[in-house]
Design a protein around this nucleic acid. Sequence first.
DNA 1: CGGTTCCGGTAGAACGTTCCACCGTGACGA
DNA 2: TCGTCACGGTGGAACGTTCTACCGGAACCG
Lengths: 345, 345
Amino acid sequence: MASRVQPGKPTITDVARRAGVSKSLVSLVMRGAAHVSPARRQAVKKAAAELGYRPNAMARSLVQRRTHIVGVMVSDLHNPFFADIVAGIQDEAVRTGYKVLVNTGNRAAAREADALETLLQLRADGLILAGPVLEDEVILRASREVPIVLVGREARGATVDSVTNDDRAGAEVAVEHCVSLGHSRIAHIDGGHGAGAPDRRRGYEAAMRRLGLARFISVVSSTFTEEGGHRGCLVLLEHSPRPTAIFVANDLAAIGALNAIEESGLKVPDDISLVGYDNTSLAALRHISLTTIHQPRLDMGQLALSTLLERVDDGRTQPARVVLSPTLVVRASTAPPRPDGTGGP
Amino acid sequence: MASRVQPGKPTITDVARRAGVSKSLVSLVMRGAAHVSPARRQAVKKAAAELGYRPNAMARSLVQRRTHIVGVMVSDLHNPFFADIVAGIQDEAVRTGYKVLVNTGNRAAAREADALETLLQLRADGLILAGPVLEDEVILRASREVPIVLVGREARGATVDSVTNDDRAGAEVAVEHCVSLGHSRIAHIDGGHGAGAPDRRRGYEAAMRRLGLARFISVVSSTFTEEGGHRGCLVLLEHSPRPTAIFVANDLAAIGALNAIEESGLKVPDDISLVGYDNTSLAALRHISLTTIHQPRLDMGQLALSTLLERVDDGRTQPARVVLSPTLVVRASTAPPRPDGTGGP
DNA sequence: CGGTTCCGGTAGAACGTTCCACCGTGACGA
DNA sequence: TCGTCACGGTGGAACGTTCTACCGGAACCG
C-alpha cells in the first residue's frame, strides 16, 4: 500500500512509444518547436500528460552544455539585505528565462567554499556571490571557469564583475543631512571589517573636512551588530562635550546605539540625532523610525544578473564595475540640535 | 585578451589520458575507492589537479539516478523564520552528505509552482517545502514523484510528511503566562489566514475557557504584518474597559501593536502587557524586548531533513507528522497589571 | 518535365559519468 | 600441479536528452 508507482519516472522514450512517434519528435514538441503537424503535436502532448512526463533537466543540460541555471551564493540568509538582492535577481531571471538556485555559507569561509563547489559541479551557467567572506584568491580561480558577479563587495581581477553601492557617497550624504539640520559635533561608529565599512568611514571623514568640521571628526570602531553599536555608543556618550549627532555604519548597529542612548536617559532625536545605513526593514519599523541611507537592493540584484548575462550570453570579456547611488531616507531619528544647550553634560 | 581558456572544461577522459590510465580508474580514484595502487592514485590526482578537473555532477547523477541534492522551497526569504529553518536543514545536510539548494516563490502561488517545477526537473532526491502557500493538490501530486516534507504547515495525504510546532499549545502557554502575572482581561489579535494562525486562536480561546476567563475572550482579526497588528490594536484600545494584556499572533504584528499602544500615550508593560509569537530576532532587540513564544526553528529544520531522508534512504512509506513544543521566552513586555487601576479609561 | 525548396519527420551519435562484466597476475592451499 | 581467490585494472554499455544529418514527398518555378 501507498506503494509509490516506481517503475522509474517516464522518459522521453516512453512518451514516444505511447504516442507512436520518434523521440526526436517528442523532444521537438516539448520545446514547442515549429514545423510539427497539429495532429502529432496533440498526440505527443496527450501521451506526456497521461504518463506524467517531466523532462530530465540534467540529461538536457548534459548535451546542451548549458543549464540555464544561475547559482547564487548568499553569505547570510539572516540578513534581510540579501533577501531583496535575491528578489531582484529573481525578477530579472523570470524575464530572461533563467532558473535561480540559492546556496549559503553561513558566514563561514569553509562552508562558502563548499557551497561554491556545489554550484561549480552543477555547472551553473553563471554565479552571483552576495557579500561573500571567501578569499579573493578562491573567487578569482573560480571565475576562470564560469562568469562570476560579486554583490556588495569590490572585485579584484579582470574575470570578476561587481555590483556595489557607493558607500563613500552614501556616508557623505549622511553627514550633509546632519549638517543641514545644524549639527557640527557629528561622530561616527564604524563597522570594522564589514563589507563597505572602510569606505563609509572614509566618506564620513571626507565630508566633515569638506564642510569645515575637521576638528569635530570623532570615530569609534565597532562591528555591524546591535551589540557593537551599543558598545560604541556608550564610548561616545562619555565624551565631553557629547556629540549632537551620530552616523552609524549600519542599521543594526544604529539600533544598538539607540538602546544605549535611551538607557542613558537621553532622547532621540531631541538630545542626539541618529543616522544608520542600509534602510533595512528594521529601520522602517515605526517603533524605531530610523533615518538611514538606502541602497537600491532590488536594482542591485537585477543589475547583478543582467551584468552576469552579458558575459554568459553576449560574450563580454571586459570586467564590469557597476556602482549605484545610495539615497537618504529621512525618518524620525534626526532633528535640529537643541537650540539652547551645547549638548555637553 | 583575458580570453578565457575555453577548449571546454576538462573531462574524466582528459584526466585519464594525461595520467595514462582508463577513465574507469579515474572514476574510482575521484570517489576515493579502495583497491587502487598508491602509484596510480597519485598519478591520477596529479593529472586532475593540473587540469583543474571537476566532476560533472549532472553526468554523474544521470547514471546514478540520484543527485544527493535536497531541494528547499522557501515561501519568503524576507522572513527570518525561514533563515533558521534553512540553517537547521544545512546542519543536518553536512552530517549526511547531501547538498542543499534553495528556491523561493515570493509568497505567490504561481511562482512557487515554478520553483517546485524547477526542483522536480532537477531530479532532487527529496524536497522540503517551508511555509508554502501552494495548493494542497499540487503538493500532493508532486509527492507521488519525490518525497516531500512540509515545514510549518500541516500535511494532507499519506505521501506527504510534515514538521510543525504545536501552535495551539504555544498559544495556551502565552495565555497562562499572562494569567500567572495576574491578568484577566487578555485579548487576542489573530493572524487571519497565516500559517498556524487559526490554531493559535483556538489555543487562546481554549486556555481562556479552561482558566475560567471565558467571559473575557476578545479577538480581533488581523494579519501577520506590522500594519495589521497596529490596526488591530487600535480597535482593542477603544474597548472599555481596555484589556490589560494582549496576545498577538506573531512578533511582527506585536511590534505594530507596540507602536499603537505608545502612540496612544500608554506604556508597555506598565499599562498593557504584550506577548508575541515566533521569537524572531526582532523580538530580541533590546529596544523592543518582546515576551514571545519560541519555535525551535533549528531543530525543525534538522528534523525536516532527517524525516525526509527516512523516505529517501530507508524507504519509509508511512506518513510522518512531527510536532514540536514551543516554549515561552519572557522579556520586558510583560508585567503584572497595575495594582490600582482596572485599566479602563 | 526537371530541378529546387520547404515541410514533417526519423535515426543515431554525442554529452560525461558510473556500473557491470571481465581479464591477467600472483599468492596460496590442497 | 592445479584450482581458487584477491587484487588492480580495463572496456563498453548504460543514463535521458538534444543535435546533426538525412529522407521522402509535395509544391513551386522556369
